[in-house]
């Protein structure tokens, strides 16, 4: 692999191996489909060279059956591969529920990773082997694209919307990670590495780089600093819906519809508070668009999510608390 002339990239996951199998099989098919063209052109150019005697009697000019068959048969063969590759692609878009989630913020020109325990990394991502990892990604400015060649995956990272990428790496090592979508001046150097470790090594790394507070705790601090607690906590003077247990649950909106309170909804509600107002509350919440960074939003979301896991059984979902109530 690392020889003078590299030819095939390393594989670090079962998924990568399955993509490679698809590539090899499909390459075999296209060689079968194209070899006749190359060989026959050369053969005909030699055999039927102008002025050279050759049997040129009864040449055909058209044959609908021949033409139809060389249009349809390759297409049907290719369809088999279409089904195969589409299945892989759908799998890539359906992350398993039990995945270990890592938050990713991209900005010109760096990658920032946030583990649930509060460990943050820049341009380096530590993950354990044999574990489903799900990256929740968002960009702070332009479109970026997280590309991990050894895992054969990439996904554009959009501003304003979370995209996800999941994988299960199985081979320890340090591999390249790059930005694949052109993102401005230093696009070329917006890279880094992914460090795949055995679970033991990974736990060790988590411990040694542990911070004082988890991501949720950082979010709790922000919740107070931005003044969210002033309205959203139970005994506040202004009526706003309590956020306990809200994460992942449906929220009734005042236009009669309902949404699932996922990360995207929470983010949008902080930045565009009056777009989707919870039913029974007045749209009075100010926007935090110029205050909260993407990292802040991720921490806040983690905090709200932690409220869900803490209280999901005990606290009822508070909707329609009071008619004179206020913003989400």
């Amino acid at each position: 692999m690392s020889g003078f002339l590299p030819f095939w990239p390393e594989q670090a996951s079962a998924y990568a191996a399955s993509v490679d199998r698809l590539v090899l099989a499909f390459s075999a098919l296209i060689i079968v489909l194209s070899a006749p063209v190359f060989l026959l052109i050369i053969a005909f150019a030699i055999k039927y060279r102008r002025g050279k005697p050759a049997d040129r009697s009864h040449p055909m000019n058209r044959n609908v059956w021949v033409e139809t068959s060389w249009a349809v048969i390759p297409f049907l063969l290719i369809l088999i591969f279409y089904v195969w590759s589409t299945q892989l692609y759908f799998g890539l878009h359906r992350p398993p529920a039990d995945a270990l989630e890592i938050e990713v913020v991209a900005k010109q020109w760096m990658w920032k990773f946030q583990h649930a325990g509060g460990q943050g990394e820049i341009n380096e991502l530590h993950v354990p082997t044999g574990t489903n990892i799900k990256l929740n990604m968002i960009s702070q400015d332009v479109i970026h694209s997280l590309y991990l060649p050894v895992l054969r995956i990439k996904q554009d990272v959009l501003p304003g919307r979370y995209t996800t990428l999941w994988f299960n790496a199985d081979k320890p090592g340090t591999y390249r990670m790059t930005c694949a979508e052109f993102c401005g001046t230093d696009h070329s150097v917006m890279g880094g590495s992914i460090v795949v470790q055995e679970p033991d090594g990974f736990s060790l790394w988590l411990e040694t780089s542990a911070t004082d507070s988890t991501l949720a705790a950082q979010g709790a601090a922000l919740f107070r600093r931005f003044g969210c607690s002033g309205c959203h906590e139970p005994h506040s003077s202004v009526r706003a819906p309590s956020l306990a247990g809200i994460y992942g649950q449906p929220v009734a909106l005042n236009n009669g519809t309902a949404v699932i309170a996922d990360a995207q909804y929470i983010r949008d509600s902080i930045l565009l508070p009056n777009a989707q107002v919870a039913a029974g509350y007045a749209p009075i919440m100010p926007t935090f668009a110029n205050v909260a960074t993407e990292s802040d939003l991720i921490a806040l979301t983690a905090y709200i999510q932690s409220l869900a896991t803490d209280n999901s059984r005990s606290a009822p979902i508070p909707t329609n608390i009071a008619p004179e109530g206020t913003a989400p």
């Binding site: 006749p36 002025g51 055909m60 279409y82 692609y89």
Partner: peptide, 28 residues
């Protein structure tokens, strides 16, 4: 993805037909 594979069919027809054109020709 599916439609992109469909568009390859007419291109394929052209290439195969050109090859067949050379058959028994007087190739310069």
């Amino acid at each position: 993805s599916f439609l992109s594979l469909v568009v390859a069919v007419p291109s394929g027809i052209k290439v195969y037909n050109w090859t067949a054109t050379l058959w028994k020709g007087h190739i310069s």
